[in-house]
């Protein structure tokens, strides 16, 4: 990967990476730091990373940093919906889902984001997160079920 390909990756993936990290960490400053660090790693290792795998590399680095960030700030409540600049008025269901996402554990939340935001398959999610396919399946099943149950409660939707 050379300079042009790196800069192309910045233009193509920085927004999506930032959204993923922001939703995962729930903090704008942390998301900014993680995105910068991810691209810094990509730049440093650009000679070892193919351009086609730049996105996977970025999300892998970002995921690991999100995990580390969660470990450091494990007691801090997830405030993604509060910090999000796009946290304006949203439809009821969508707002409830965003809220439900904040209640998920960090691992499950990240997997849901990777699945829904980026459309990764279970296999790809497993490569990024280092989990097995069955682990990814279990985590996502639990997360989906938890989100569904949150929607079922009328008070959460209204």
């Amino acid at each position: 990967m050379h300079e042009k390909e790196y800069n192309s990756a910045v233009r193509e993936w920085s927004d999506r990476l930032f959204r993923f990290v922001l939703k995962s960490t729930g903090n704008m400053a942390d998301a900014d730091d993680i995105v910068q660090n991810s691209f810094e790693q990509l730049w440093i290792k650009r000679s070892q990373v193919e351009a086609a795998k730049a996105k996977s590399f970025l999300f892998t680095v970002a995921y690991n940093q999100c995990v580390d960030n969660h470990r450091v700030k494990t007691r801090r409540p997830h405030t993604a919906l509060v910090d999000s600049p796009a946290s304006g008025p949203t439809p009821g269901v969508k707002k409830a889902i965003e809220k439900a996402l904040g209640n998920l554990d960090s691992q499950s939340r990240t997997l849901v984001l990777l699945k829904d935001y980026e459309g990764y398959s279970y296999e790809e999610i497993g490569r990024i997160t280092g989990l097995s396919d069955s682990q990814v399946r279990v985590y996502l099943f639990r997360a989906r079920k938890q989100l569904k149950e949150f929607l079922v409660c009328i008070e959460n939707v209204i």
Binding site: D15, F18, S84
Partner: peptide, 9 residues
């Protein structure tokens, strides 16, 4: 979930 396209880095 649907990504919020209004969020940009």
């Amino acid at each position: 979930l649907e990504p919020d396209q209004t969020i940009e880095y």
